[in-house]
Simulated assay, not measured.
Amino acid sequence: MSNYSIKDLEQLSGIKAHTLRIWEQRYNLLSPKRTDTNIRFYDDADLKRILNVAMLNANGLKISKIAAMSAGDISQEIIKLTDQSIDHNDQIQALTICMIELDEVRFEKVLSTIILKMGFEDTVLNIIYPFLSKIGILWQTGAISPAQEHFISNLIRQKLIVAIDGQMGNNQGKTFMLFLPEGELHELSLLFSCYLIKKHGHKVIYLGQSTPNADLISVYKMQKPNYLLTVITSSPAGDKVQEYVDMLGREFTDSEIFVSGLQALDQSISIPSNIRLLTFAKEIKDELIKMEKQKV
């Protein structure tokens, strides 16, 4: 069980701390506990309740009416709302509740419903990416546990792998080699890139997580891919990012290289002429569309 401050609840629910305190005092919506040193904190039940309350309130239900509802009634209203709503914030909030509860069955149902309504690509770009950005910040600040973050990431990873398997492709296009730097394990963006590339009819050599430089160079010499794509989220970090980017530019001069990820984008690094920085996943799709137009 996790402990949350009022600021954690604000970040997770989008409701200002001042408003949360009013709701707590006026409607008894929250039940704060106290540490041995008399510091107030909230538990998972409080977080789940306020996420549900915030979602219903955002969709027009008055807070006084919500406060009078039983936990079962609130749960039923949330299920009904997420099944019908197409609002992105509602869907992200619903996924957040599933994460807090570690509810795999509900997460699968919510995500599958969104995909049916929006399509797989739009779901990833407009729901999953903002959701992952939200939980990434919450994980860094300690508002959620690593276990909750890993739980959700693995479920999304499974969805991406199934989607990739569904893209047979004719492999008549260009060849892309996809990899993560040694020590890098954040694979979701790379998997989505693989899906997009295969969907557009190109061949993918997928090396995946934590690829040693020697292995990368060895496969490159054998396969001679047209493009390389990597994402640097956590490793390498600091001044090692420049060293890694320089190595890519030096070792793979005959290919165009796409680089993305927080470590590459958050620093002022010098970019070799054969490397392009991508700031968002949609840019990969844009590049693939450009390639198709050039063939015409």
Rank of each mutant, 00 (worst) to 15 (best):
S145L: 05
E77S: 14
K174R: 11
F258V: 00
L61S: 13
G173M: 08
S112A: 12
L20K: 03
V259T: 00
D286R: 05
D8S: 12
I269D: 00
D73C: 14
Q84R: 14
N57A: 07
M291T: 07
I63R: 07
A58M: 09
D8K: 03
E251T: 03
L116G: 10
I127E: 04
L265R: 11
L125R: 14
R250N: 13
L216R: 01
M55T: 10
Q140L: 11
K7Q: 15
S64K: 14
L262C: 14
H200P: 00
F41G: 06
V241W: 01
I205F: 02
P181N: 07
I74T: 12
L277R: 04
L47A: 12
D286M: 06
E149T: 06
E287I: 05
I197L: 06
K174D: 10
L155N: 07
I79S: 15
D165P: 02
Q158R: 15
G136H: 03
S133D: 15
G173K: 02
N126M: 07
Y227I: 05
M69W: 11
E292D: 11
D36F: 11
D87C: 09
K240P: 01
A147G: 02
M168L: 14
E24Q: 10
I6P: 03
I137P: 04
P181Q: 07
S270V: 13
V105K: 15
N28G: 09
Q140G: 07
A237F: 10
A147W: 02
L61G: 09
A147R: 07
S268G: 14
S273P: 03
E101S: 10
L216C: 05
E149V: 01
S189H: 04
E77T: 12
S85M: 06
V204D: 04
Q91A: 09
A17V: 05
D239M: 12
L196N: 04
A17L: 06
S273Q: 09
G166P: 03
A214L: 15
N28V: 06
Q223M: 11
I39K: 11
I144D: 05
Q76D: 14
F120L: 05
K117G: 07
I257S: 04
Q25H: 11
I78T: 08
L188W: 05
Y42N: 11
M222E: 15
S145E: 08
K159Q: 13
D73A: 15
N57M: 04
I100N: 02
I269K: 00
T279R: 15
A264W: 04
L188A: 05
H150F: 04
S273K: 11
L191V: 03
I127R: 03
Q11R: 15
I115C: 08
W139G: 03
H88P: 09
H18R: 10
